[in-house]
Structures are given as C-alpha cells and as structure tokens.
Design a protein around this nucleic acid. Sequence first.
DNA 1: TTGTATGCGTTATCAG
DNA 2: CTGATAACGCATACAA
Lengths: 369, 369
Amino acid sequence: MQKVPTVYDVAELAGVSIATVSRVLRKPHEVADATRDRVNAAVLDLGYVPSGSARSLAARRAGAIGLCLPDFDGIDDDPALAPVTFSDGQVPTVLDFPEDVELGDNLYISEVMLGTEIEAWQHGLAVTIAVARGSRGTDIFDNLAGRVDGIVTLARTIPDQQLAHIARRVPVVVLAGPRAGDEYDHITTDNREGMRVMTSHVVEAHGVTDLAFVGGPADSPDDDARFRGFCEALRTAGLPVPSAPVARGDYTRVQGRSIGRRLVADGGVPRALVCSNDQTALGVLDVLTGAGIRVPQDVIVTGFDGIDASEMSRPRLTTVYQPMRDLGRAAVDTLLHRLRDTQLPPQTRSLPVRVLLRDSCGCLPAQAA
Amino acid sequence: MQKVPTVYDVAELAGVSIATVSRVLRKPHEVADATRDRVNAAVLDLGYVPSGSARSLAARRAGAIGLCLPDFDGIDDDPALAPVTFSDGQVPTVLDFPEDVELGDNLYISEVMLGTEIEAWQHGLAVTIAVARGSRGTDIFDNLAGRVDGIVTLARTIPDQQLAHIARRVPVVVLAGPRAGDEYDHITTDNREGMRVMTSHVVEAHGVTDLAFVGGPADSPDDDARFRGFCEALRTAGLPVPSAPVARGDYTRVQGRSIGRRLVADGGVPRALVCSNDQTALGVLDVLTGAGIRVPQDVIVTGFDGIDASEMSRPRLTTVYQPMRDLGRAAVDTLLHRLRDTQLPPQTRSLPVRVLLRDSCGCLPAQAA
DNA sequence: TTGTATGCGTTATCAG
DNA sequence: CTGATAACGCATACAA
C-alpha cells in the first residue's frame, strides 16, 4: 500500500503500453496470448488493482447502483452515539427479562436490500447504500447520486425536492410508493386487493362480522391502500364501514403491543383484528396471548408482509405475503431497462401478493413445530 | 438527464471559474457571499450533481468503504434464477403449512451490515456491498477494492490469495475470524470464554452433568472456539470431555431441526443441549417442543449470538449475546484508524459477550408476552 | 477572494 | 495486434 501501482507501472514492467494493459483487463481476447501472460504476471507481481474512480470517469459509467433507505434502525441524529466498547475479558451473566425492545423491525428492509443486491450482482453491479438519518440526509444522497448509475429508493425516504434534483442526473426507481404524478418508475404491490381478499376471507370463511383495522402511520400510502381494501371488503359484505382504523401504530412490534394493551384495557377487542403489517400484528398477538385471550378461538389476528417472524410466532400468523425480495430485484431490473432506453415513459410495475392462511385466523390447527 | 451538467456548465452560468464552483461545494466559507449565492443558484438551476468518480480521482480518496459478505442467501451461482414475476391483479389464497424453509438465517449478517453502515454514516462515508456468490466472486472483490478506501470482510469470505492481493491496495479489516498470522486488523468476540461461562452456568446453576455440544461447520473458527470453551467448562467441573460435538449443522435453523429430529429419533437426547449458535438452537427447540419434550424441564437448550429470534421463541432462548452491530462499527472504526496511520502494527480488537439467562435453561419462568 | 493550470488513472479512438 | 493520445470531471497548488 506504499505506492499503489497504476497502469503505467504495469505497462512498464510488462514492457507494453498502458493501452494494452487496459485491453488485457477488459478485452483479453483482443490481445496476443504471450502479451496477455506478461501483463497478467505484472499485475500479480505488483498487486495491481484498477482504480474504480478513474475507470468510472473514463468509461462514463459507475458500475454501481445506489439504494436509499429510511432510518430503520432508530439511530437518527443522535450525535452522542456511544462509541464501541471493547472486551475486558469478563463475561457477565444476566437474567434477561422480556422487554419492549425493538425487535426485527428492519426485516422488510433487509429483504428489499437483499433483493436489490442479488439482481445487481447478476448484472455485475455493486450496490452502495445510503440511509436517511437526521439532518445529514441532504448531502448523503447527492453524494450517492454522483457515484452511481441509478438509484433505487423507498418511497418517502428522500424529500421530493431533493429527489427531483437527483433525478436530473441519474434514473430513479421508487419502491412501494404511490404514483404521485412524478416522472419516476415505480414498483408497487397489490396492497388494496390483498387486504380486501384477506378481509373477505375472515368475514366469509370464519363468519366474523365484528372486525377492526389496526393501522400504520397516517401518512403511509401503503397503509392507506390496505385500509381501503379492508373497507371495501366490509362494504361488499354489507357490514358497517369504519371511517378510520381503530388504532394506529408505526409498523413496529413495540407499538403493536401498546395498541394491544390499550384494546385489552378498554375491553373493546373485536372478534377479529386486521393489522396493517406483520410487526403490528405480532405485537398485538404478544399482548393477547399474554392476557390469556386465545387466538384464533377468541380473537382472530391477521398481518401483512409475510416476514419471517410471522412464520415463527405461536400461533403462526395468517398474513398477506408480498414478495419483498422481488421488490428490490424488480427495481434494479427496471433501472437497467431505463438505463438502456432513457426515452421510455415512466412505468409502474406491480408485484403480486397472496393470502397465507395459517393459525391465527383458525384455518390451520395451531401446532408446535 | 439529457446532458449531465459539469462544473464547467455551472461555472459558465454563474460567471465564475470552475475552481470557484468547486470551492463553493467544498469550502463555502472561502467564497464571497454573493459569489456563493450565484453559484448555488446555478447548481440548482442546472440540476448539477458532482461526479463521484471525478471527485474521488482528483481527491485520491473514494469516500466509501467496502463490505464483503459470504453468500448468506442461498442464491449462489444459480444462473437460472427465476426472473421477477409481476402482478396479474389476482390474489391467491393458500393454506400455508409449516415448512422447512430458510428462516432468518441472515439475521447475524444484517446486524453486522447495519453496524457498518451506521459507523460509516457517522463519518460521512458510503458503504458498498459485495457478496461472494459462486464463481463471480473473483472480479467482484477486485472491482470493489478499486472503488473504496478500505474493506471490511467477514472471515473466510474472500480466498486468502485474493485477499492478499486486494490488501496491497486498501486496508482490510477481518471480522470474526481467527488471527492467522496475517497482517490484517481483526475484530473478534469472546467466543471461547462466553461459551465456557454459559456451559458452567448450566452445570453449576442447574446441576446438569449430562450435556452435549451441537456444533456448526467444521471449518468455522468461531465454532471451534466455542467448542473449546464448552470442553473447558466440563473439564473444570470434572465431567467427561467429548472429543467432538454430538452433531454438526451449518448454523441454519433448518439444519438445527434435522439435528433435533435425529437426536430425538436416536432417543439419545441429553439433559442439556449447548448449541453453537442461535439458529441451530432454535431449530432444535422447534423439534423438541414439537415432540412433546419440555424445555427446560426435560431438556435445557442454549444458543449463541443473541439474534432477535432468540427473544421471540417460546420458550425464550438462553444464549450468549455478542454485539453484532458493534462488530460492524468497530471494524469501520479500526479501518479509519489505519487509514490515518498506515504504519500501525496489525491489531486485534475483541468485543465483549454476555450470557443472557432466559427461559430455555430454566432460569426464568416461561411466560407468554 | 478568485482564476489558471496541472494532475488524478482509466478508457477509447485512431493510426500504424 | 499494439501504441499514442485525447478526453473524463474535479481538486488543488500557485498566481494574481
């Protein structure tokens, strides 16, 4: 690492020009065998690794795509984030009581991330991540936009104005957002229809007439669509349609628990609780079973997303599965299309969901493993 | 996106030189207010976003760090990875039986990733990810090394030889690996001591004399250290010390289940099963409770890692918690130190673990929520 | 405070 | 098949 070698060093050692070195690396077949071997030997000998910046600059493409995510870890702007503590060799033993700690609230995002990475990998692209935390968001996204060929962003992660600015440089694909008359490509899932079918199932298959919707953030378009699906099912069934969710959380399990506690305390737990996402449903489930209320016998609980945790709960959660991983993959795929043809009109592509009937609605007998 | 504007365009529009534009962006205070305003206006007007490649090249630093991860999603080299399917508007409803699907096997890695991102974010650095899948691994890491200022890699992700090559260009920090006489910086956790204390607890607090170790991959240094800790505890207690784990999995829950089934079938389930990681323990737990074997009354089960899922199981899993997020953070921190002082001797920094006593060893009464 | 000129390490175009 | 050489877009030392 003393003096990082460049093409010039390799060229000199191999006794060729830098053009040839470049060729050996990019288009080996255009170079004579003997020459190629000499160059490769020099590369190994010197420990040469091409500069990505120089290459991107010259080739006019970064070979990477950017992924913008909201602050999903609760770090936010905390300037006093404690420094890492190193070991002193001691191993304390502590009684660990159940607590309301954040649990797996980033499962959804992890999957999206993974899908993005997989598809990018398939096309030989790197993925660079930027998370919107606190105030530093502004420059971090500009910075990202400058170093990638395209950007995938979760809806509402980047302020509209800034997104517009960025989009003038690189194509942008928005995930899970509503089409708001913008010019970006969008990837969505069948939120409304999924929730409609889920709700209808509870009404028709289980004969429930008393059900409530536990919502997410009021400004979430996903939540809105799901609530509308819920209402539509009730309307079709001739049941009274609420004007708003019975409660609203923030999509976390912890909030789901608060809501559950409040409902139990109020004594107003309906026959079925249709939740806007899995984490909320799991939080509600935690409280209900803890309070001795049987699910699904006394109360039916359903979720939305199909995260791993919904499969691991007892009872297992009936939910609407959406292909989170495919969300990321589809985004990259769309990005590549656009990169290829800039003139395409803005697209919206939708991914399918499916209702997964499990224990928490009473379709399957609760079982252990 | 037609013609991406450059410093030259901004300079022209603002009636200044490119040097001034650059200054406005990098050192705003060195520029007169009026000038600065004009430039900023031009930037906004043109939708200018600086080129990351050009900047990195000129500044001789990438402003990003690379994170190398093993193939943790089972995608591997599958060339026929099915393309994403888009929605046809239908929402199928299916009975979803419990299956042996992969469940949350990337929890550990997700946390490491998150920690890395957080610390990088704090220092204004981007994080670029590369996953070692199948054969494409080779070029992907070289590619990464060329575009970052330093690399964080999980042990055994990159072949030794290639890692050596890469390390000649950028500093490398290895996570969770053993120090193998290499010149890299390392971050580890107290695997051995953690497992020793855990095992001693089972022996001493619960009076167990009949315990077995369920291991992970035979070539995992972490697993090896944990097994040694296990043995040491037995030796100290004057109990017979096994020469090898009673079974070996691959750290996944699915494998944990297979092992559990085999143990149950053989009728040889000991009083306590000390597992090398949480996923394995959870898989074992799935099978035991499914088979009507009571945990912890009949059999004690313990894990290692402290992933979220260990908190959500019933009974909740007694385990050795290691600060996965801090692993990532410490790695970045170490990288920055090295970047600052290239001459530092290779360091190994260790992170503390702690034994978390929960339901599966019988320390806490099993409870619902 | 601002401008000029040079270099950063590649790729790509054109000759040879 | 190989070699000059001109971009690529920005940062920065040095002048003015």
